[in-house]
Design a protein around this nucleic acid. Structure first.
Lengths: 190, 190
DNA sequence: AATAGCCTACCTAGTAGTAGGTACGCAATC
DNA sequence: GATTGCGTACCTACTACTAGGTAGGCTATT
């Protein structure tokens, strides 16, 4: 098998496992079983577990950048852009998973600094993008929010990340639909 | 040393470790080092790690029940009750920790069912209490919120739990102050 | 004398990671 | 066009260590 293929499979498997169980609750053994190679061979692609984690977050940040660009391109109104963003989270919720970054952030204190940085970067990028869209929406009279866009952005991201965790703890249901509704009630209160 | 004393010390140490690092990232060895006994002796108090986890969540639920009762007793207005509730979280934030229950909820899929139930109970109890206060506030004309109190309650709890995680990922600052501000802006938009 | 609380000494299973080797493909050289 | 040399992608077998957990003994209190 080609390097990239196996490496990609390993990243995919690791991502699923982290989103389902957490960074400290998966092993190279789990990965090996999923991909169909031996644990030792994983070290060829990712010398250490934290190397794998860093690679995973790098890919995740890239995916985010791509997803945000796609939203910006194909959607016009700020409100529908924000809805598309939230949809990224409701899809994760439907899978019964939590955000890779949220999962890693929970385990933050046990992770190497390089991973901690990647986590912060992902969240910061998300937050900034949300704040931009809110600001635009307010500017164009689409949204009637009088507070600071950055405040609403931080709150939305918090409630999405937390919402995923609580949703799973509830054992199902669409908590994020509720979060979205409340969020737009806040923004549209004119 | 008396049983209760050691057991309490073990619970305290375990709680700190879980709030800092997560359930799967602490061991009886860590506990033993903190409390000053051998790992084997911990099994005398808590035969298995999940027994410890369950005992911990039971205590945490009791603490919550007590805290909510105390708030209900000493505070009059719904708004200040909600503020007192949020203060429980800002104190956790200041310690650089996350909620015990939120931490366990992140690791949910790796935990025994008894613990999963305890987590759900804690969150449900919190959510119900918040919803009650919002409903009261609206009824007494204190809060001008037109949506469902249960929706706002679920959203607030999500943003508090998520906020604790994001705040730590940021490496400081008072994100929850922002969350609180946005929350009351939502509630008071009349 | 019984019991509570902790100990030493051990177990099994699993962890990340390493050492050394094999099979194979792809170039450059003869 | 066969040979040499090197890189890739994987393997088996192992190391050193940690995990939670158990058996049985010692000691101080009751």
């Amino acid at each position: 098998m080609k390097t990239n293929e196996t490496a990609t499979q390993l990243l995919d498997a690791a991502q699923s496992l982290i989103q389902e169980r957490g960074y400290n609750a998966f092993s190279y053994k789990d990965l090996a079983a999923t991909v169909g190679i031996r644990t030792a061979s994983i070290h060829y692609h990712f010398p250490s577990k934290s190397d794998l984690g860093v690679a995973l977050m790098e890919r995740y940040v890239q995916d985010l950048t791509g997803a945000l660009a796609a939203i910006d391109q194909k959607t016009r109104s700020s409100k529908s852009k924000l809805k598309s963003f939230i949809k990224l989270y409701t899809e994760t919720e439907r899978r019964g998973a939590i955000c890779l970054c949220g999962s890693l952030a929970s385990d933050r204190e046990t992770l190497p600094p390089s991973l901690q940085k990647a986590i912060a970067q992902y969240l910061q990028q998300s937050e900034r993008w949300i704040a931009e869209k809110i600001q635009e929406g307010v500017k164009h009279g689409e949204l009637g929010f009088r507070g600071k866009p950055a405040d609403a952005a931080a709150t939305l991201l918090s409630s999405l990340q937390g919402g995923l965790i609580l949703s799973r703890a509830r054992g199902g249901g669409s908590l994020l639909t509720t979060v979205q509704r409340v969020f737009f009630e806040t923004l549209e209160a004119a």
